[in-house]
Design a protein around this nucleic acid. Sequence first.
DNA 1: ATCGGGATTGCCT
DNA 2: GGCAATCCCGATG
Length: 281
Amino acid sequence: MAGRKRKLAAAAGERDVNTREKQTCEEEEKRSESSAGSDLQLRLGEQFFQQPCISLAKAFLGKVLVRRFADGAELRGTVVETEAYLGGEDQASHSAGGKRTKRNTAMFMKPGTIYVYPIYGIHLCMNVSSEGEGAAVLLRSIEPLQGQSYMRQLRAARRKEGARQLKDKELCNGPSKLCQALDILRCFDRRDLASDPEVWLEGDPNTSPAETYDIVSAPRVGIESHGEWAKKPWRFYLRGHPCVSVLNKEAERQPQSGNAINDLGSSDVQPDREQSNVKRT
DNA sequence: ATCGGGATTGCCT
DNA sequence: GGCAATCCCGATG
């Protein structure tokens, strides 16, 4: 566990989402081209995304999603829940039957391409394309690691005034909550997660290798109308993790899919970061 | 031009 | 646990 400093990471908690001008796609595009991330050695490159969809969906677990703002502030969270959406046969996928539309173009782009789409008129979901025609991984939940207070402001801005303060584990425990908390915007669609200066994925040296996690495989949620395909166990989450959006008791009774047991309760304190206050049970 | 549904969330009972 | 919110996109005529 190297004591690496994040000198460029401003105290995200000092930011005020209400006085800060609302982020737009135009502003995002004006960002400095030279503001590349400071953790080049941790950043996962394009080869990471070059694997089949189900494999990539599992590989995302335990990796750290990073969002960097123009002023240098960075938000971080560990991916704890994903879903695989294969193209072709998978009727629940936006790319079912190889169907290409303007909306789902990113699903057919090179592995690592971000696919952001609006849902229910109000929310956004973030996916990342994988190997395989039209295949992509939906990012459903992350555990907040850094910048929780700013995440809370971003989330509160969309909630009723006077609503109770969200707990840390409630900040990013759902696909659209994650987008809100990290300020993932519609204009991130079709960007490259392997090279974009504002959002990327890191391997975290403080966590165990992905293959040591205890992963639960469960049916995907919210796609009940798709018959047999709704039953495929292509949702993956870290067993026992408090930031998972929906638990599936039935699936948790099944033996896990080829991953060794790992103790999730022994995470180290990370002195260079705003410490995660998520309680594990 | 119009129509129907949606990979969700938060508030209310 | 029910259900409204809210609107873009894709399909159809």
